[in-house]
């Protein structure tokens, strides 16, 4: 077997990217066995992999992952749609902006996690409460990104569009939306990870399935391997969605 022998700087970086994750697991494995840490509390990747396998074959991995993703997707789509719609409205109508911005600025910094108890009282432990929490978390980020995005469309492009005969009612679709898109996408991407934080809070507070719920159950049973497997699954889902989002954004904005 020939080892990586990078000859160029680019080659070196590529090799480093390839060994990044295996190296992390190797060090983790070594540290777990080394005796520096308690092996029961800090199980090696091999034990975590075993727990993951067990979860997939004899547990409810698919159900848990499916439930978690569906919560994120539903809450995210609702929050993002509302955020884009209201962001466009507040950017275009100063009266509406004056009315809504102060209250939004007060509500926005409230961490969605702090809302969990009251949402359980209002909506119970069912799915709608979880959708609502994620919607809440996503909405404000997308709203503010859209609001500023629409306002920052280059005025020169608006003038050019006017001089080319753009009727006022088509300005939104032809100029403001595409011009705001880069900002909106930053908001959408940021709020995707916010949606996952909120998912964890929502599932820990009470659920019958879900990846974070499984971590909580594993905690109660002191199955530390399964807890870590849950973390790995959360990381993979979140990173996968982010990667997919990035690819989509790059395709939609290939003009940049």
């Amino acid at each position: 077997m020939v080892a990586f022998v990078p000859t160029t700087r680019a080659g070196l970086y590529r090799s480093l990217r390839i060994i990044s994750i295996p190296l992390f697991f190797a060090i983790w494995e070594l540290v777990s066995h080394s005796g520096i840490v308690n092996e029961f509390l800090f199980p090696p990747p091999s034990v975590v992999a075993e727990a993951l396998f067990e979860w997939a074959v004899h547990g409810h991995l698919l159900l848990d992952v499916g439930m978690s993703i569906s919560r994120v997707v539903v809450g995210y789509i609702l929050g993002a749609t509302l955020g884009v719609a209201i962001g466009i409205a507040t950017a275009r109508y100063p009266a509406l902006s004056s009315l809504l911005t102060p209250i939004f600025q007060v509500l926005r910094p409230i961490p969605p996690i702090a809302l969990v108890p009251i949402v359980i009282l209002w909506l119970g432990l069912n799915e709608s409460g979880k959708y609502f929490l994620i919607l809440w978390a996503v909405f404000f980020t997308v709203w503010i990104a859209t609001h500023f995005g629409v306002q920052r469309v280059d005025p020169l492009l608006i003038r050019a569009a006017q001089a080319l005969g753009t009727p006022e009612h088509r300005m939104l679709r032809e100029m403001l939306l595409p011009g705001a898109l880069p900002y909106v996408f930053v908001g959408l991407r940021t709020s995707l990870s916010v949606a996952f934080y909120t998912l964890v809070a929502a599932e820990l507070a009470g659920a019958f399935a879900g990846v974070a719920y499984r971590i909580d159950i594993a905690h109660e049973n002191l199955r530390i391997g399964l807890m870590m497997a849950g973390l790995v699954v959360l990381g993979l889902i979140s990173a996968g969605l982010d990667l997919a989002f990035e690819g989509w954004a790059r395709h939609v904005m290939r003009w940049r």
């Binding site: 020169l156 492009l157 050019a160 011009g179 904005m253 003009w255």
Partner: peptide
């Protein structure tokens, strides 16, 4: 215009 004013997304 003097500055580039083409619609970059088109």
């Amino acid at each position: 215009f003097q500055q580039p004013s083409l619609f970059p997304w088109k």
